[in-house]
Simulated assay, not measured.
Amino acid sequence: MSGGRKGRAGKRPAARPGPAARPNALTDVGDPVLRVVSRAAFALVMLLTALLLWRGHNAPGGGFIAGLMTACALILHRVANGRCALNFPPLTVVPWGLALSFTTGLVPYLLGRAYLKSDYGYVSTPLTGEFEWASALLFDVGVYLIVAGSALHIAYELIDVNPRERVEDDR
């Protein structure tokens, strides 16, 4: 055999797969137990998230912890199933959360009260009985959207990193 990199049969060795063809541990999920358990865990974590968000303005919890718990549940879903549960990029909810949080704080200020001053009242329904509502919940929802969107964006960017890829400046 003369020159070049030819194999035994005279063929060139297969080229390395491109980035799209490289196997990824998070997209080649083959563990059915993880997928089944993650469904139940996802549902339970999201219920806990709703409770933390709902009770957060009166008790420990709130938008920050609920946003982190949502991000963890969605990361678990992606690891277990190899795909994102959202149909949109998570960073798109951050501006909505910023607008909601800012507006919730601005409205009392425009009405002559302190910035972020919360208002509350009681509502009674046949289904739930009497419960308290508070404008702080809207602020918490804004924080929830900011934290969940940014945490998911950071995590998904880190998940998509392939440390074997080289850039032009690597030697």
Rank of each mutant, 00 (worst) to 15 (best):
L76A: 07
L76Y: 01
H77K: 02
H77G: 01
H77W: 05
H77C: 00
R78I: 01
R78V: 04
V79L: 12
V79R: 12
V79N: 04
A80N: 07
N81T: 11
N81P: 01
N81K: 01
N81Y: 06
N81L: 09
G82I: 00
G82A: 00
R83W: 12
R83A: 13
R83M: 09
R83D: 14
R83V: 11
R83T: 14
R83C: 13
C84A: 13
C84Y: 10
C84W: 09
C84Q: 11
C84S: 15
C84F: 13
C84I: 08
A85N: 01
A85C: 05
A85S: 03
A85Q: 02
A85R: 00
L86M: 11
L86D: 03
L86H: 06
N87T: 09
N87M: 02
N87D: 10
F88G: 11
F88N: 13
F88I: 13
F88W: 15
F88H: 14
P89C: 09
P89R: 10
P90S: 05
P90N: 04
P90E: 04
P90F: 02
P90A: 07
P90I: 01
L91I: 03
L91S: 00
L91A: 05
T92D: 05
T92F: 08
T92M: 10
V93Q: 10
V93M: 12
V93P: 05
V94W: 08
V94Q: 05
V94D: 02
P95H: 09
P95W: 02
P95Y: 04
W96E: 15
G97M: 07
G97S: 11
G97N: 12
G97F: 07
G97Y: 08
L98D: 07
L98K: 04
A99C: 09
A99I: 08
A99L: 14
A99V: 06
L100M: 12
L100K: 08
L100E: 09
L100V: 06
L100A: 12
S101A: 13
S101D: 03
S101M: 03
S101I: 00
S101L: 08
F102C: 11
F102T: 14
T103V: 10
T103W: 02
T103F: 03
T103M: 02
T103P: 00
T103L: 04
T104I: 07
T104D: 08
T104E: 13
T104Q: 13
T104K: 05
G105P: 03
G105E: 02
G105I: 02
G105S: 03
L106W: 04
L106E: 04
L106S: 01
L106R: 00
L106K: 03
L106C: 02
L106I: 00
L106A: 06
V107I: 15
V107G: 10
V107T: 10
V107A: 12
P108K: 07
P108V: 08
P108M: 09
P108A: 10
P108N: 07
Y109I: 08
Y109R: 15
Y109L: 15
Y109N: 14
Y109A: 15
Y109W: 15
L110H: 12
L110C: 11
L110A: 14
L110D: 15
L111F: 14
L111I: 09
L111Y: 14
L111D: 15
